[in-house]
Each structure stands twice: as structure tokens, then as C-alpha cells.
Design a protein around this nucleic acid. Structure first.
Lengths: 193, 193
DNA sequence: GTCTATAATCAGATAGAC
DNA sequence: GTCTATCTGATTATAGAC
């Protein structure tokens, strides 16, 4: 509906503040708490401004998601350029601050068609980042050759990292030291100092 | 509010139907779509019945969560009684049907204090189920002794399993065969046929 | 146990003044 | 660019008839 309303400029600081507000609300209260009013309040603006900068609430969410995705992709690309790429990749994946937001977007993707489509193409794209470097690493060590594909190793790291990150934000801490120790042991085997 | 309304019996089939409705809505449309109307419609009942069987919507959600938790706990206890407990545990954890619901409850836990408290105690309790059996298994094989604690191994299995399950329901399939192959290879090393 | 009717509140979205 | 005022519809929850 209403595809023909004038919109504010993309360079506006209020527009950016609204997207920051979306992320803040999602982190603190979850995606279900996202309303034009809650987002604008977090940004220190009136809720009607949402409809000056975006056609619909969904448009605001999508813009925020695309900004978030671009940032995560950049972080992962940077990680794979480090001297020990898997160590750096693990740091990115196990970061609790992003784990929380990632989970909220994942949950949103389950019932928002546009967000899901974006998530799927992003997921497929992510798998290919730095894959050649990881493959070379894995082929270079005896432990690595035993452990199957670079795909599987990076997926396992991402899964364990996000799980530890999510549990940390929830307030579950038991067993994390042991899990982190196991991951560190494997990483050191694949990427000796 | 309203702590003094008469309530229907716990044995009522309508009460059960409402809890089934909660799970159906969460799976299909996410927890944000949970309203007295959406739940009752899924159950084939009028929305006012929610308030005959539960004091508030939150009470209905908590009752449904506790029923879900009890079921998962039972599944995991059963798994650890199988001949190859880690193989069975992996099957439970990587089941897409439950992965989806688990993630929705996890996301809910982030902004619902009662659900979060329940999640934390449940998470800590889960870690102790079958831990003695896994510890014995791990100590019994050379690969196991190398790989640190039973805690870490079960947490890694749970993390990878739920991640694969969630991605499957989202429609992301790339790389899963390789990940499943890697897990199967490890499981066979720890629990030979 | 189930329904009709209703109260109070909050949501997304728009029109138009300044 | 930002605000006041407003419309429409959905939400939780209650009272009370049957």
C-alpha cells in the first residue's frame, strides 16, 4: 500500500538513528517489540518520522538488516585476511553482541518472506568467503586432512560460536570454558602459532 | 492483574488444544504472531476461551513452554539410554522440527523474564543428563581422550545440530551433507558400531 | 464450558500545518 | 524535516448471558 509518499534522504542522520533504534530494540526487547513508536523513542524522535524516511515498517527493518549483513560480511572478510584466519573467524562468530542480534534476525526470517530471502542468499554467499584459504590450511596439517571439508569446519565453528554467544547473553555460563578450550585446542592444531 | 478468575480444569481437551495452537503458531509464523485470537483460531476455538483456561496470555505461553521442555528432556534422557548414546543425542539435536521451536523459545527468553529463568535452569539441568555415560565413552577411546571434556563434546553436538536444523527449516541446505558427514565420522570414532 | 458484547489500549499509516 | 491530529483496525482482558 501507499507506494507513493515522499521520502527523506538516505544521508539523513535521523534515518540512521532510526536504524540504530531498530537494532537497540531488537537487542534489548526482541524483534516482537519493534513498533514505529518503540523505535522512534529509542532514537529520540517522534514515531511519525518513521513514515517520512520509510514507506512501511517492513522497509525500515529490511534497510536495517541489509546494513547489518554488510557489516557482518565485512568482519568475516577481514577475519579471513588475518595471519590465523580460523582463529579470527572464531572471534567474530562467538561475539555475544552480534550473536543476539543474529538470532533475532534469524527468528524474524522465519515469518518474514523478504528477510528470509535475504538471509538465504546471504547464508550461501558467506560459505564461499575465504573458503580457498581455509581449504589450503586444512590440507596443510595432518589433523586437517582427517577432518573433512573446509565447509564443515567453518560451519561447525559458526554454530558453536553463535550458540556460546547466545547462551552468554541469556545468562547461561556453565560449560563454556570447556567448550572454548576444546575449540582453541582444535584451532591451534589447524593453525599453529 | 486479575489474579482471581475462575479457571477451567487442566485435564480439559480445549486447554491442551490451546497449547498445541501456541506451538503451531510459533512454528509457522513465529512467536511475535502469538495472540489470543491466532492461537484459538488454530485450535478451532473462540479467543475468549484462552481467558477461561489461563489467567493471562503469558500464563498460556509458560504452560506450553514447560510442556515442551519436559518433552525435550525426556527425549534426551531416552537418547542417553540407547546403545550408542551420542549418536542418539545427535539425532535429537539435529531434528529440524524441534530446532525451529527451540529457537523461537530462545528468542522469547531474551525479553520474557519468566521464560528466561525457566530456560536457564533447564539449560543447566540438561548439561548433567547422561554426562557420566558420555564421560565413560570419551575416556574409552583414543580420539575421545584427546578431545577434552564430555561437556564440550555434547555442547558442540547440540550447537551444530540446532544450527543445521534451523538452516534446514529456513531453506538453506548448502554444506549440510559435509557437516553431517564430519559429525558422523566423529561419532563413529567415539562410538564404534 | 462456551458464547456475545464491550472497554481500554495500542498498532500502522496518513493528512496537513508549520 | 518535524510535528499535531486523526483514522482504522487489532489487541488484551472482563462481564455476564446461556
Amino acid at each position: 500500500m501507499a507506494a507513493t509518499r515522499r521520502l527523506g534522504l538516505e544521508s539523513s542522520s535521523s534515518r540512521t538513528a532510526l536504524m540504530d533504534g531498530v537494532e537497540a530494540v531488537m537487542r534489548e526487547d526482541g524483534y516482537a517489540a519493534l513498533t514505529a513508536r518503540s523505535v522512534a523513542e529509542r532514537a529520540g524522535l517522534k514515531h511519525q518520522l518513521v513514515y517520512y524516511y520509510f514507506q512501511t515498517m517492513d522497509d525500515l527493518l529490511m534497510a536495517t538488516y541489509q546494513r547489518h549483513i554488510a557489516r557482518v560480511e565485512q568482519q568475516i572478510e577481514d577475519a579471513f585476511r588475518q595471519p590465523r584466519p580460523l582463529h579470527a573467524f572464531w572471534e567474530v562468530c562467538s561475539n555475544p553482541h552480534d550473536a543476539r542480534l543474529n538470532m533475532e534476525f534469524m527468528a524474524m526470517a522465519n515469518h518474514n518472506d523478504a528477510i528470509r530471502a535475504e538471509t538465504i542468499t546471504f547464508g550461501e554467499r558467506l560459505r564461499r568467503i575465504g573458503l580457498d584459504r581455509v581449504t589450503a590450511l586444512i590440507e596443510a596439517t595432518p589433523a586437517g586432512r582427517e577432518m573433512f571439508s573446509a565447509f564443515a569446519v567453518t560451519q561447525a565453528l559458526a554454530a558453536i560460536g553463535s550458540n556460546v554467544g547466545i547462551e552468554t547473553t541469556l545468562g547461561i555460563h556453565g560449560g563454556h570454558e570447556e567448550t572454548r578450550a576444546m575449540v582453541a585446542w582444535w584451532l591451534d592444531k589447524l593453525e599453529p602459532a
